Computed example of a mutant assay.
Amino acid sequence: MRALIQRVTEASVSVDGQIIGQTGPGLMILVCAMQGDDETAAEKLAARIAKLRIFRDDAGKMNRSLADTGGGALVVSQFTLAADTKSGNRPGFSAAAPPDQGRFLYELFAAALRALGPHVETGEFGAEMKVSLVNDGPVTIWMDSADRG
């Protein structure tokens, strides 16, 4: 699975003009299930993100995790993280998991993160969504479950 993680002071996602998910200080996580991903990939990625030390400690260093801060997370499905831009001007998305598997792994990822303690809200899989956020820092981190065993 791939994730784009942004440390935020606030974030929200809306569908048809209605906010369906939001968080205060914490993380905005765009996530994409890739071909070949399984439950283990979703659970491991959630655990890595929960422990990711990108929040400031008392000395101002990025040394605290989401778990340490008690912050929340907004998780939004984002199949375009699978974009292949190696040739041409139109990205290809064939590396993304099929929609049914993508939905399953997206929901599993959000549930696994929630089980680790943070308050987690989500977008709506497959919907046309509007995402708003205030990136804190700015801090933006790219993670891929294929990068680690």
Rank of each mutant, 00 (worst) to 15 (best):
A146V: 00
L27G: 10
I19N: 11
C32L: 03
S94L: 12
L74D: 11
G26W: 02
I54P: 09
A115I: 02
L52C: 08
C32Q: 13
M1F: 02
M143V: 14
R103P: 04
I141L: 14
A11H: 02
G123P: 09
M34I: 00
N135Y: 07
A146C: 02
N135M: 10
G24H: 12
E43A: 09
K61W: 05
R103V: 02
R90M: 08
R48N: 11
A111M: 01
K61N: 14
F55D: 11
L133H: 10
H119V: 14
T9V: 08
T140Q: 13
A73C: 08
L81I: 02
R53Y: 04
R2W: 02
M143N: 05
V8S: 06
D57P: 08
V120F: 01
K130P: 00
G123H: 09
T23Q: 07
A67I: 14
A112Q: 10
N63R: 05
D16A: 15
I54Q: 05
L108P: 04
L27C: 08
V131F: 07
R2V: 01
G117D: 12
T69K: 08
L4W: 03
H119W: 01
L30W: 10
I19P: 06
G21H: 02
L52N: 08
G117M: 11
D38S: 12
T85V: 15
V13I: 05
L74I: 05
L116M: 14
G26N: 06
M1K: 08
V13W: 08
A82V: 02
E39G: 12
D57N: 15
M34E: 15
H119E: 13
A11Y: 01
L52I: 03
F55T: 05
K130A: 14
A97T: 13
R114S: 15
L27P: 11
R2Q: 15
A41D: 15
A96S: 14
M129W: 07
P138W: 07
P98G: 04
D37M: 03
F109D: 13
F125E: 13
L108V: 04
I54H: 04
P99E: 09
N135E: 11
T9L: 11
E124I: 04
F125C: 08
G71T: 07
D136N: 10
I20C: 13
I19Q: 12
R114H: 14
A111L: 03
G137K: 06
A110K: 06
A111H: 01
D100I: 11
L27R: 05
A42H: 04
T23K: 05
G26M: 05
G70C: 10
D38N: 15
K44H: 11
V8M: 10
L108C: 06
D38F: 03
I19H: 01
D68F: 01
N89F: 00
P138C: 10
A11F: 01
N135W: 07
A111R: 06
E39L: 01
S65T: 03
G60E: 07
G102N: 04
A82L: 04
I49D: 05
Q101M: 13
G17V: 07
D100A: 15
P138K: 11
P138A: 11
R53K: 14
K130H: 14
M1N: 09
Q101Y: 10
M129V: 08
T40H: 10
A83K: 04
E124L: 12
G26I: 03
S77F: 09
F104V: 00
G72F: 05
N63Y: 00
D100G: 03
T9P: 00
G149Y: 04
P25V: 01
G126N: 10
S65F: 01
F79C: 10
